[in-house]
Design a protein around this nucleic acid. Structure first.
Lengths: 109, 109
DNA sequence: CTCGACTATATCACGACGCGACATATAAAA
DNA sequence: TTTTATATGTCGCGTCGTGATATAGTCGAG
């Protein structure tokens, strides 16, 4: 899948997809990602098994992550260059969202 | 719908839902919301008609927005107190996300 | 040594969501 | 007058996150 289509199909990114990709700057396997996401969100976000393995399969098919190693009971992935471009794009969107949070925060007090 | 269930069902909020509620601190009708969202996102986000009217119906049913006025060709809504609580909750989540954007940004360069 | 807890992956059906297409209608502007 | 903008609504489509279910290896406590 080319970069243009990737960005179109993955924007806006779901929170799940965002945290999976955030975990894959270091090579990790599915179960390791689940634990890492729990860590960085302070146990708030717990990914279901269907979510993680389904998403990883889809992301590999689309070329935003790649197989790093295939051990007996561990399939280890890492993010690709296209994946990094996508994440930079998503991070810009999240910054825009944050600007609007700060701007309109007082209206909800 | 009670507040606990509202927060559970609307978290994490979709970008669409977030910007619709952000628009409803002032009373607005569907079409007005579409135009307002285009404005605050710099024409990035254009809501489809199915999205806006479907979401408004659902949000009113769940008690996070309420009918403010029902003119001939305009149904005007505004956010409820429960809706404001929900938005404060969502804004906290977006701040956490933003912290992680700043923290891990350099890993995607 | 055995039993439960943890690690690890995979598939399935379910409900929810965003979207564009299509339909309908009024009002303003060209 | 004809087009463009305003305004709401419904429908089917594809996608997504989730929990249930299945399967299986590892490892420590009793």
């Amino acid at each position: 899948m080319n970069l243009e289509k990737i960005i179109k199909n993955y924007s806006p990114m779901t929170e799940t997809a965002f945290y999976i990709l955030l975990s894959l700057t270091e090579p990790r396997h599915g179960y390791g990602i689940i634990k890492h996401v729990e860590e960085v969100t302070g146990n708030r976000l717990k990914l279901g098994s269907g979510t993680i393995y389904g998403t990883l399969t889809k992301m590999e098919r689309d070329g935003i992550i790649t197989m790093y190693a295939d051990e007996k009971r561990k399939k280890i992935y890492e993010i690709t260059e296209d994946g990094k471009v996508l994440m930079r794009h998503e991070m810009e969107r999240l910054k825009e969202l944050h600007v609007n949070v700060i701007k309109y925060e007082e209206d909800f007090e």
